[in-house]
Design a protein around this nucleic acid. Sequence first.
RNA 1: GGGCCCGUAGCUCAGCAAGGCAGAGCAUCGGACUUUUAAUCCGAGGGUCACGGGUUCAAUUCCCGCCGGGCCCGCCA
Length: 534
Amino acid sequence: MSQKIIGHGTWYDMMAQRIIEREKQLNRDLSNIKTEMGLGASGFPHIGSLGDAARSYAITLALREMGFNSELIAFCDDKDGLRKVPHGLPKSLNKYLGFPVSSIPDPFGCHDSYGQHMSSLLLESLDECQIEYTSMSASQAYKTGILTKEIRTILLNARRVGEIVKEEVEQDRYMEVLPYFPICEQCGRIYTTKAFEFDPKTNKVSYLCEGLEIRGKKIQGCNHAGQVDITSGKGKLSWKGEFAARWKALDIRFEAFGKDIADSVRINDRICKEILNFEPPSHAQYEMFLDKGGKKISKSAGNVFTPQIWFKYGSPQSLLLLMLKRFTGTRSVGIADIPAYMNELDILEDIYFGKKKIALEKELEKLRGLYEYCWVMNPPETPGIHIPYNLLAFLAKMAPKESKDDFLLKKLRDYKYLQKNQIFDSEILRRIDYASHWSQNFDEIKESKVTLTQNDKKAITDLISSLEKCKDADKIQNTIFKIAKSNNIKPTIFFRLLYSILLGTTHGPRLGPYILTMGLQNVVNSLKRSIDNN
RNA sequence: GGGCCCGUAGCUCAGCAAGGCAGAGCAUCGGACUUUUAAUCCGAGGGUCACGGGUUCAAUUCCCGCCGGGCCCGCCA
């Protein structure tokens, strides 16, 4: 009954404790507990890839909070072959299908290779979130030979590997083919080769470049028959085996994974244990992120929801909140959810700083912990100013282009979010930036046609002639009321009408000052147009 | 064929990996205030937590089953 709260009370703390217990039972060295994430480099990284990192890093943080050293290894799968040209990239890349992504030129011309371009996009987003990692890449690993011992063991036990694969997923392939893909020395492709013999004396694998069918599409091989030295870096293990090799060689103790590779992980666990004699790392399986249409967010499909897109509208912490608040469960996510996560982070911040009370201690600790994880354990010392996202987006939309900052400053002071003489700090500017992007892209003022009655038209005509005489805000404000009343229109209704014409919404900022900032003549023109259009 | 997730207020969902109060936002309705300002403030209604069993002093939460919706894998990675 008496429940002691573990760490910060989150799932990550519990998992970390479980890992420690397991490692202690296994009697393994705890001086540096490594977690790992794999990062794909064959397409634009989507937010799900960042989720993998966020969750593994949260475990690393939790382990550190418990007093252990821990390190996140970001392992870049840059020897994977290109299977499909991602949407939005030139068709000319088709000629590189089957090539390791690290040997394909960067179509953007800014990195050493296609693979490096893609993986750097994800690494940049990790930096943005202040996720610390030790970067490694497959090409580097195979070249420097850190996996050689494991590769040898796996190839020498290829028959057993084949049996495990068959037992787990009923796939026959590796009963005959070695779980190793040489890069064809003649055509440069990797998945087209079939490795059939390993000579432990020379470390050489014999292969035939016979081609491979992927998703119904055949990638042609060149029929070259050759040999490759496994220590040369000119080939790689199949995923069914490579994880295990990595885990052992790098001494990995935790790796989270998406359910799409659950089978591979299960197979690798067995290979790791039964063939490499190494207890596989602890695991946690998470669900895929779905886009709002319910389809898996895929690296090669169009309209990829990338971390970079998120950062346009929301903070890194809000993205981490999305990733960390729940571990299980399929998540549907779209750009439209960003404001909600921004607001939720503000609520968490209120809880963290005790501004908002939570009755249950367990609940309180968990939410405080979640907040700290979102800030990768470096939360701000003082709470920020919490301007609701929607309000900012709304104000940003309403603001006259020429004097946006003045307008926002005044409104935020009026609404008491800012003190009388307070000016924007970097935090508020950031929020304004997010909200402005939002309103520009998703809430554009529509040129909706407003239907006017004869009476409306008359009132507006009256307003036009009065406006031309007005010079100050209060006078304009009063004039609007007077005209509404003199035309037998309820002020509320009349205001709503004017907002519709001028802003395309039913409400907005105090009209007097707004009309002045917009420019009297502009307003008059706009009103005239609305009458003419009816 | 194998596996996973979801089902909670009219809507969107939180709560479930640590069993102990049925929750939030929006919407609806009522009231107050109003020279409009994501108007604001106060209040109300709304639930078989999909369904059936089990464990338990106690189950939305854990276990088994079942129905419905969705996803992943079954090439490669």
